[in-house]
Every structure is written in structure tokens, then in C-alpha cells.
């Protein structure tokens, strides 16, 4: 297992380098700079600012400096949030986004697996069709439609829950954003579970278990173990995406997460903030893909052998 982890980390290093290099040079190619204000700064002040942040050096030297500080775990100072480093910003925002993301992931998995297995065990029946309909709706309605809808129905109309804000993680404030985040993924997981469980259920070993008179619960356990593999395979990118926050949900519900930083940073030419976000997301994808692979290996002995 340690060999597997080591090999996967080694494999992901070129990807990570490509991501960092690609975004570093792309963002520097773009017209405009972080100190372009409505009223242009005096040339001398601009010169000083650029020198302080090292922007006056050749691009390749700057890239080298960035890589070195990245190796030390330093993401650099933010250009727009003066006095704060990118690490500071993440330290504040990541707990918010990760809380929402992990709750949404758990909810999406619970709903998706439950309704997906329900549909698979009732192939062609009422439950199957209802779940199919709900899942296709869940996939089609984008979060920027569900979020305002939830706000107006549960926040303003019924006045059950607050329409937005973080309020130090008050559970009541979490319900609507978590629901918004979870629904499309619950729909996706339900569809996937239905399809893969459906294929497992018609296999000979399940028929044998039925013939042997095993209880439904025992059979379900055996079948689910195999059917979970395709679901687990999608979990890596899904978890990474959820943990690093969503621009839409955080903007609409006014949450202080890190989902907004990327677009904001790009609009303000906050080079280090954009780079930091890209690095964070890439690392998260690698880590969660690794975790997903380990779970898959635990579920399927064949994967352990080949590794």
C-alpha cells in the first residue's frame, strides 16, 4: 500500500508542475496588472511597488522564485488583500468551504446511494421511474437556480431558515447552502448507483446467493460492494471540488469561503491568489484521488493485487 501511495505521488508531480507552470505563464501573459487602479499611480510609486513584489525581474526568474517559495509551503502575499498572505486567506476561508463541502458530500452520498439502490432493486417499477425523473431534474437544474429558489421559499416565504450569512457556522445557516451543493451530486450518484447495481444484480453469483436462500440484507451487502466501485472512482474529483468551495453558492449565500477567490483574484490580477487557488485545487484533486483509489482497493481485491 505504501508503494502504491509513493508511486501515485510520484506520478502526480509532473501534473502538478504542469498546472503551476501553465497558470503562472497564462496569468502573466494577460494584459493588465495588479496595481492598475482607476487613477493611475505615479510612475515612481509603481516602480517601487513592482520592485517590492519582485515583478520587475525577468519572468523566468520570478517563476523560479515562486517554485522555491512553493516548496517551502509559502504561497506569497496577496496583491489585493494587502497585509494578508494567501496562506492567511486560505486559513480563514478553507474551514468554511471544507465544512460545507464535507457535509454536502456526506449528504449527496447518503441520498444518492439510498435512492440509487432503491431504483435498482425495483427496475422498471414506480420507484425506479420516480428516482430517474428526480435524478434527471437534479442534474439539469443548476445551483444558481436552486440557490435563489431555496432562499425565496425557505428563507423569505416560509421564514424557516436564514437566507444567507455564515454566523460562525450556525447549523441553521448551513442547511440551504449544503442542500444546494449536494443535490446535483446526489442525482449523479443515484444514477451511477442504479446503473452499476443493476448490472451486478443480474450476475450469476447474486443468483446463486438468492438460490441459496440468503437474506435480502446479506445479498445487498455483497452486491453493493461491487456496485460501489464506479461510484468511488468519481469521488476523488467530486470531493476535491466540494472541499474547495463553490463560487456560485458562496456568492449567493454570502459565505466567507475560498470559492470566490479564484474569480475575484483573476479579475483583480491578484497573481499570487490565483496561483494559490490553482495549487490548492490541484493538490486536493491529487489527494482525494489517492484516497478514492485506496478505498477502491479495499473494496476490490483485484485492484490490490495489480497494485
Amino acid at each position: 500500500m505504501i508503494a502504491l501511495i509513493a508511486r501515485r505521488i510520484a506520478q502526480s508531480l509532473p501534473t502538478l508542475f504542469l498546472v503551476v507552470a501553465g497558470s503562472f505563464f497564462l496569468i502573466r501573459l494577460a494584459p493588465g496588472g495588479p496595481f492598475d487602479l482607476e487613477r493611475p499611480l505615479p510612475p515612481a510609486a509603481m516602480e517601487n511597488l513592482r520592485r517590492v513584489y519582485g515583478l520587475d525581474q525577468p519572468l523566468i526568474v520570478q517563476f523560479g522564485h515562486y517554485l522555491l517559495s512553493l516548496l517551502r509551503g509559502d504561497l506569497g502575499p496577496s496583491f489585493t488583500f494587502r497585509d494578508l498572505t494567501v496562506t492567511d486567506l486560505f486559513a480563514r476561508g478553507l474551514p468554511v468551504s471544507a465544512t460545507l463541502g464535507s457535509l454536502a458530500l456526506v449528504l449527496a452520498l447518503a441520498l444518492g446511494l439510498l435512492f440509487g439502490s432503491l431504483a435498482a432493486s425495483d427496475r422498471g417499477g414506480i420507484a425506479d421511474r420516480l428516482v430517474g425523473l428526480a435524478a434527471s431534474l437534479g442534474l439539469a437544474v443548476p445551483s444558481f437556480v436552486t440557490a435563489p429558489l431555496f432562499q425565496i421559499v425557505f428563507g423569505l416565504g416560509l421564514a424557516w431558515l436564514p437566507v444567507g450569512g455564515w454566523a460562525d457556522g450556525n447549523p441553521r445557516n448551513l442547511v440551504l447552502p449544503v442542500l444546494t451543493l449536494a443535490l446535483p451530486h446526489a442525482a449523479g450518484i443515484a444514477r451511477l448507483t442504479r446503473a452499476s447495481l443493476g448490472e451486478v444484480l443480474i450476475q450469476p453469483h447474486i443468483r446463486t446467493q438468492r438460490a441459496m436462500g440468503l437474506s435480502r440484507a446479506r445479498i445487498a451487502r455483497h452486491a453493493l460492494r461491487g456496485a460501489l466501485l464506479p461510484v468511488v472512482a468519481t469521488l476523488g474529483p467530486l470531493a476535491a471540488g466540494l472541499m474547495t468551495g463553490s463560487v456560485v453558492v458562496e456568492t449567493i449565500f454570502g459565505l466567507p469561503g475560498i470559492g470566490r477567490y479564484f474569480v475575484e483574484g483573476a479579475l483583480n490580477r491578484d497573481y499570487t491568489l490565483v496561483m494559490g487557488t490553482v495549487v490548492l485545487v490541484a493538490v486536493m484533486v491529487i489527494v482525494f484521488n489517492l484516497i478514492a483509489d485506496l478505498i477502491a482497493a479495499a473494496l476490490d481485491p483485484r485492484l490490490r493485487l495489480s497494485a
Binding site: S12, T15, L18, V19, G22, S23, L26, I27, A30, F262, V263, A266, V274, T277, V278, V281, A282, V285, I286, N289
Partner: peptide, 11 residues
């Protein structure tokens, strides 16, 4: 493995 949406947004 690339966060493509990010590149799209950057572009």
C-alpha cells in the same frame, strides 16, 4: 487532472 474550468475562467 488539470483544473480546466480554472483555465477557461482565466482565458
Amino acid at each position: 487532472a488539470l483544473p480546466f474550468v480554472f483555465f477557461v475562467i482565466m482565458l
